[in-house]
């Protein structure tokens, strides 16, 4: 042992690997962000800073397509996140505060089913299902598929939070003449709020990000941002894709930062 102090916890090299890990994780994102400000027409030659590709996204030849796709993406994500978070909040209350019951394990299995099944299988199954009942593919099919897919993502942070809330709070509320409904809305719901917000943000991001399921169940001509980007990339990478990517990256980072502070903040202090 060459080290001055014998530390049982420290393994030489682990720190290096961690840093390497961070470099691998961040390098592609940083590089794309930098190149999105490239003035050059070509992908790789650096010709100085410019916002031309951002301008291109908003007013270039493809701008109409991207604007429409962005609108679709956000509308779908908001609806899917609101609905799936509401369903997940009720379900978490039933699961965590419903005592022991026969269908409990089965219910948990059903709720986490979309997490266990590979996404492409979910996509195929959903497409086939809509086809078999003669449901025309369009925005609606995307919304429905996203609601189902987002439920487990919203459910996990909510139920985790709820398990950390002792039931003595609701009992105290009932002891103080609150009905069960009042105990839920006045005590349990506010205490669950950080979990609900985390669940909502996670569901929102998952819906906004989804490519595979959307690609299968969308109707012809309906695009979301990921499917539009994928279509463009397939025709060859252009710098405007990097500008869009950077903007979406910004949205993600804003969301994750909110989520981080929500999980740290506490309405009990």
């Amino acid at each position: 042992m060459a080290s001055k102090q014998f530390d049982i916890k420290t393994y030489g090299g682990f720190k290096g690997i961690t840093l390497l890990c961070l470099v691998v994780l961040y390098a592609p994102l940083i590089v794309v962000t930098i190149y999105s400000f490239n003035a050059s027409q070509s992908l790789t030659n650096w010709e100085g800073l410019s916002l031309r590709w951002y301008a291109d996204v908003f007013s270039g030849p493809e701008s109409a397509k991207f604007k429409e796709a962005a609108k679709n993406s956000f509308v779908i994500a908001i609806i899917a996140a609101v609905v799936s978070t509401s369903i997940a909040t009720l379900a978490a209350t039933g699961m965590v505060r419903g005592g022991k019951f026969k269908l409990r394990t089965l219910s948990f299995g059903l709720i986490s089913l979309p997490l266990m099944v590979p996404e492409i299988v979910t996509a195929v199954a959903t497409l086939i299902f809509f086809n078999s009942i003669g449901f025309d593919r369009g925005l609606m099919t995307i919304v429905l598929a996203h609601i189902a897919f987002c439920i487990p993502f919203a459910y996990l942070p909510i139920s985790a939070r709820m398990q950390g809330i002792e039931d003595s709070y609701e009992q105290a509320a009932q002891d103080l003449y609150a009905t069960k409904r009042q105990a839920f809305t006045k005590i349990l719901l506010p205490l669950m709020m950080p979990g609900i917000i985390s669940g909502f943000l996670l569901a929102f991001i998952v819906s906004l990000d989804d490519f595979i399921i959307t690609n299968f169940v969308k109707g012809a001509g309906v695009e979301t941002l990921p499917t539009a980007i994928f279509g463009s990339v397939k025709q060859g990478m252009k710098p405007n894709i990097m500008a869009i990517s950077t903007m979406l990256l910004g949205v993600s980072i804003v969301m994750v930062t909110i989520s981080y502070f929500v999980s740290k903040s506490d309405n009990t202090k």
């Binding site: 059903l110 069960k180 839920f184």
Partner: peptide
Amino acid sequence: ATTDTYKEARTWLLMPAWVVLLFLSL
């Protein structure tokens, strides 16, 4: 960790999730 404050309501609380996942997942 489970408690049973909302034991009586659990069927109704879980119903939306059951319906959605039964139809759109299973």
